Simulated scan of single mutants.
Amino acid sequence: MLEQRGMTGKQLAARIGISETQMSLFRSGKVRGVRFTTLSAMCAALECRPGDLLDYDFAEADLPKGDGA
């Protein structure tokens, strides 16, 4: 998405107010979570939707443990 917008990760990080390290971790898929405000800011700056930035592969460990009640 950055390439499509002619922007670098460093430029996006500066524009939305996060560190370059956080941007690098997000881009590499090494973050365990992202705040909705950060995701919203990324989408606004890149003129995209969250699904354009995120992907998900099913993992059984993501399901809650227990009886579900």
Rank of each mutant, 00 (worst) to 15 (best):
G9L: 00
R49H: 09
K10G: 03
R15H: 12
T38S: 11
G9S: 06
V31L: 07
A14F: 05
A14M: 09
I16H: 13
V34L: 08
L39C: 07
T21S: 13
C48W: 00
R15S: 13
M23K: 05
F36D: 11
E20N: 14
I16C: 05
Q11D: 10
L2D: 05
L63H: 10
T21L: 04
A69R: 09
I18M: 04
G66E: 04
D52K: 01
L53Y: 08
P64F: 09
A13T: 10
F26L: 15
I16N: 10
A41D: 14
S28N: 15
G6P: 11
T21K: 11
A59T: 14
D52R: 00
A45K: 03
Q4M: 02
L2Y: 07
D67E: 09
L12N: 01
Q4F: 00
C48I: 02
G68L: 06
S40C: 10
A59N: 15
F26N: 13
L39V: 11
D67W: 07
A45F: 03
G68T: 01
T37A: 14
K65M: 06
I16L: 05
A14I: 03
T38A: 06
D62G: 03
G9R: 02
T37E: 15
L54F: 05
G33R: 15
M42D: 05
K65R: 14
D67P: 08
R27L: 14
S28I: 05
Y56A: 14
Y56H: 09
L63I: 10
R15T: 13
G17H: 12
R32P: 11
Q4A: 06
